[in-house]
Design a protein around this nucleic acid. Structure first.
Lengths: 152, 152
DNA sequence: TTATGTGCAAACTCTTTGCATTACC
DNA sequence: GGTAATGCAAAGAGTTTGCACATAA
């Protein structure tokens, strides 16, 4: 269901990061690589704080400010995406190439990613009707996941 | 296109507020009415700060904390809805009974509300496929409005 | 009368910024 | 060697909380 290309390995993401950094006349760093690596292996969408704590646990010397600065850079370069649920802060995930939306369980916080061709087309259509040129969108569906429906 | 019932007047919204307050064993107040009245007349989605400033300009003695507390109450009672665009804080609008989503111009900030039956149905369908019971959703389309497309 | 609501200030949380130092190229 | 990146601490922005006083029922 998910739009997919051949899956890329960590090595490739790091190469892309280095390329982008060089293109901008900037410098690569240990820290940027650590964050990208963590996001590559993450099974969830992480907050800056979670990324910081995890790296600290792995004995990194990284600072929280660096995490924020790096995430801002990675997002701007479209290497990672951020999503925000309700009023809690942003969460980040590696951009693996397939656009998708999110379904969130309001009880347990479980997040399911989905992609629907028809939905995407419909949004384009709606925007066109209003004369808008659509650039991006964020759709979050909130509900109860199967497990949480059982334990009412 | 927008789901619609007969439009309600300010008086009716205030009556509903009073009813809800009483049901909860709470007390009505001048301040709650001021905020509701402001939201009724608002043409845009307002931040707590904007609501506070506007009321101060109208010589209210209200405090910012009261604005936050009241908005939380009104939202919980489903009298107002909040939306959050990107990472900026929540904005509030009076719940006029018709669910709708938002299209936001990333250049000028213009917000257009829309409602699409087919889109709503499709979301239900997608949630069902994943075994979720859908409770609510938020969809924001970001793009360029007609005016901003011209002045490239 | 009495519990709830209010305004103020302080506290909190999340994020950004200034700056001396480090490390990449 | 020169410039960008880092880590720390302090500053900001937005929001919440504690408390004494005001107010609705």
């Amino acid at each position: 269901m998910m739009k997919s290309e051949r899956e890329r390995g960590l090595r490739e993401y790091i190469e892309e990061l280095k390329r982008r950094v060089k293109e901008r006349g900037l410098k690569h760093s240990q820290q940027r690589e650590e964050i990208l690596t963590l996001l590559f292996h993450a099974r969830r969408h992480l907050t800056p704080e979670e990324i910081y704590n995890q790296l600290k646990r792995e004995k990194s010397t990284i600072g929280l400010a660096t995490v924020y600065r790096t995430l801002a850079f990675l997002e701007q370069e479209n290497i990672v995406n951020s999503i925000s649920f309700g009023s809690e802060g942003k969460r980040y995930e590696l951009n693996r190439g397939g656009h998708h939306d999110h379904m969130i369980c309001i009880r347990c916080g479980k997040i399911v990613e989905f992609y629907n061709e028809e939905l995407e087309a419909l949004q384009e259509e709606i925007a066109r009707r209003e004369g808008f040129v659509l650039i991006t969108h964020q759709l979050n569906l909130y509900g109860l996941c199967p497990q949480c429906q059982k334990r009412r």
